[in-house]
């Protein structure tokens, strides 16, 4: 089934030839031996991760650490050089209905001629399938989703006339429309106002209270301990992953954010120690 493993084909030396470790099917996200490279430069290296169910998980690391790429690799948006990511035990293409993705706000053109309600309704497109139009029932759900993020009154406003925080709420409402079990969010807290930040936190806690799993790329170290149950510290590799209280330590942060030079040395060392 798993043909993604291309590690034997040159760019990167083959590793991890032992059989796949078993993982229980209820794990929302299981990643094994994941390596991603852009233009032959590795961005993620040998990621091994199991995200527990129902947790609010923060992904923390410096710029360029591969945080966004990790989400995209799980969603088949970037090609994997090796390894796999399974969602509830199956590849992403078989689990689309269980995942919602909130991309970075800057990833789209906010001058696009649509209003907030149009964007939120896009969250229903997978349910609708090819050719079928957004119907009254889905429009109603979209209004409810906008209400849940507190901007139902802005439903008919063109998206360029929304503030940054309101735009982020539109994206969250769109994800709510997907009615998923696993939410992958890329920097939802980036450049939003305090009220929106609190609204997002409340929403994340509510989702996690309903047994949903949220994986959130986060950049503000000051709020990590108060927002997340579980964290993944990442800098090209997974430095540490586990419950926030045990994992968010000075030592681990040093390893994650340490100087670039020491990082390169570690990568070189890892290459040398790789069995050919």
């Amino acid at each position: 089934m798993h043909t993604e493993s291309l590690s034997g084909q040159g760019v990167f030396p083959a590793r991890n030839t032992e059989p796949r470790p078993e993982h229980p099917p209820e794990v929302p996200l299981a990643i094994h031996d994941l390596t991603v490279a852009y233009q032959r430069k590795p961005v993620l290296w040998d990621i091994e991760l199991n995200i527990p169910e129902g947790k609010l998980v923060g992904i923390v690391g410096p710029n360029g650490a591969g945080k966004s790429t990790l989400l995209k690799a799980c969603l088949d948006l970037v090609p994997r050089t090796s390894g796999w990511a399974h969602i509830y035990g199956v590849p992403y293409r078989k689990a689309r209905h269980r995942v919602a993705y909130v991309p970075q706000r800057e990833s789209v053109d906010w001058d696009f001629p649509v209003n907030a309600l149009d964007v939120v309704a896009m969250g229903s497109y997978r349910r609708l399938g090819w050719f079928r139009r957004v119907n009254a029932a889905e429009t109603k759900r979209a209004m409810e989703a906008l209400d849940q993020v507190g901007i139902a009154h802005l439903a008919h406003r063109q998206i360029s006339q929304l503030s940054g925080g309101q735009q982020q709420r539109v994206f969250l409402a769109r994800a709510l429309m997907q009615d998923a079990d696993l939410y992958l969010m890329d920097e939802p807290f980036a450049a939003v106002d305090a009220a929106t930040e609190q609204a997002i936190v409340d929403l994340l806690r509510r989702l996690s209270g309903e047994g949903k799993t949220c994986l959130v790329v986060h950049h503000d170290l000051a709020t990590v301990t108060s927002y997340f149950d579980w964290i993944v510290l990442i800098n090209m590799r997974v430095v540490a992953a586990g419950p926030t209280a045990e994992t968010f330590t000075r030592d681990n942060l040093q390893k994650t954010y340490g100087g670039k030079l020491s990082l390169l040395e570690k990568a070189a060392e890892a290459l040398r120690s790789t069995p050919r």
Binding site: K72, L75, D76, L77, R93, R96, V99, Y101, P103, S107, V108, D109, F112, V114, D118, V119, M122, Y125, R126, R174
Partner: peptide, 14 residues
Amino acid sequence: KLSSFDPDLADTLG
């Protein structure tokens, strides 16, 4: 409309 606005979302939705 979807793929012009947000091609990544289009891909993740199938």
